[in-house]
Design a protein around this nucleic acid. Structure first.
Lengths: 168, 168
DNA sequence: ACGCAAATGAGACTCATTCTCATTTAGCAG
DNA sequence: CTGCTAAATGAGAATGAGTCTCATTTGCGT
């Protein structure tokens, strides 16, 4: 009856359709992933499973994430870092991300007008869109209020922004 | 007098401002990069330099790319692959990308309305944007006309899209 | 031309991700 | 309930983009 169980069932349906099996490891991962209402990476998952004394190998985590992405239940997102992040897809709530380059926090947003405009652009280019990925990098409200630290650009390198772009 | 020479000078100005030096290797790389009117990755650069018998080590390529990004002359872009791509910045023509998931081709576009809407959204979230990164994945005109190949989803895995997302 | 900080090349290293393969398991047929 | 077999797992090796180290070389101000 917990909500996450529905997700496990959803995954099982997908697996059965592909002639694949629902194992204990896969079920645990789905339960964990759908309890994280935020972005995570493979290592965080590995760590959380270890915390709960659920033994799952790194390989299985990656393999299961791949299946979940194929099933559409999980989405791979780029957050300006040099490795992948993931997030679960609840219902069909697509959203994009504002990423703070100072503190690393991520704000989600969804804007129908933005989406509509994108579709218009695609039409003009005779391009059939299936999916998109938008991150807006910048400074969040609380970091802005804290003022400019003189040594702030440290995080800039990580995220691959140029000083010039930041200055714009 | 070739156009690329202006870029070399631009880079030299940046380097001097930082107390850094313009070396033969750096100049060759800038000339090469500003002759590529497309996206490239570090390995492609390495290969092209080898082709021209210009000896430059992998480390220098990465180091120079980092400097060029810092100078604002080159931009790091994510194109849905698992490693970085770069593109040179000519003037101040920001643009975004339509990436075909079938043939891998990339169409650039720039849309002021889209940008304006993004700024509006940021304002609502009290977020100060400095930069953004938008890729729209989908199928380009010529691939669409070729119809659906029964084995098309091969590239899907590479790009990390789910079958469900593609179907939408 | 000198001196020295900066730059280079070669290869070692890191670290996320993928692969291999021997062993275990889910789930179907009987 | 039992056996069977394809699929799944874990452990660790392999991969590959990107970074770092350090001995040697070079740009460039004096």
């Amino acid at each position: 009856m917990p909500v996450v169980q529905r997700e496990v069932n959803r995954f099982q349906n997908f697996l059965q359709g592909q002639g694949l099996k629902l194992t204990g490891e896969r079920a645990s991962l789905v339960r964990e992933i759908f309890s994280i209402h935020y972005h995570f990476d493979a290592d965080e998952l590995l760590f959380k499973m270890k915390e709960k004394s659920v033994k799952i190998s790194r390989a299985t985590i990656y393999r299961t994430l791949e299946l979940l992405v194929k099933s559409g239940m999980v989405r791979r997102v780029h957050l300006g870092e040099d490795h992948y992040h993931y997030e679960h897809v609840s219902g069909n709530s697509h959203h994009d991300h504002l990423v703070c380059t100072t503190c690393g926090s991520v704000i989600e947003f969804h804007d129908p007008l933005l989406e509509a405009r994108q579709i218009e652009i695609c039409g003009r280019k005779r391009f059939t869109p299936t999916f998109h990925n938008l991150q807006i990098l910048g400074v969040c409200d609380s970091c802005r209020r804290k003022g400019e630290q003189p040594d702030a650009p440290d995080r800039v390198k990580m995220i691959g922004l140029s000083a010039m772009q930041l200055r714009k």
